[in-house]
């Protein structure tokens, strides 16, 4: 596939979401940028943006770890329960500031596309794209 059509940002920090949106917009790598403020909202977004729906499912999710209502780990547990077909083309990357060994260990055991230290930068996004969407990306 080519560039990710739709990217979902999940973070309770509005400023972070703003900056990440700005970064991704500048990189112009997505047709659509969705934002959720916690895991529960993210699940809701995924329910309304399924592969067969008009807008299509997000192909890349940047997921914060610490969030109110439903945190990143809880979200992943709930995500596991979704139909396989809904998840087939979605890559989840965790974004964290936590260096707590316990958290790191948990993340390493997860079946996800990777985890990155905040803040999200152009270099980090490029690395994710190269790994999961291998096609030369031309940033503007």
């Amino acid at each position: 596939m080519s560039l990710p059509a739709c990217i979902l940002l999940v973070d309770d920090d509005q400023t972070t979401n703003y900056l990440n949106r700005l970064l991704l917009k500048r990189l112009a790598i997505a047709d659509e940028l969705l934002v959720a403020q916690n895991g529960l909202e993210a699940l809701e977004v995924l329910r309304t943006h399924r592969p067969q729906s008009e807008s299509g499912a997000p192909v890349l999710v940047f997921l914060d770890v610490k969030m109110p209502v439903m945190d990143g780990f809880e979200f992943l547990q709930a995500y596991e329960q979704l139909p396989a077909a809904d998840k087939a083309q979605t890559v989840i990357v965790m974004l964290t500031t936590s260096l707590h060994p316990h958290d790191v260990e948990r993340m390493q055991q997860l079946n996800i596309g990777g985890f990155l230290n905040k803040p999200l930068t152009k270099e980090k996004v490029d690395a994710v794209l190269q790994r999961h969407f291998p096609q030369p990306v031309s940033a503007d």
């Binding site: 920090d13 400023t15 610490k66 905040k118 803040p119």
Partner: peptide
């Protein structure tokens, strides 16, 4: 450190 990191990263951004 976690709670401080987020805002300082934000300030930088």
């Amino acid at each position: 450190s976690h709670d401080l990191k987020a805002p300082i990263n934000n300030i930088e951004g």
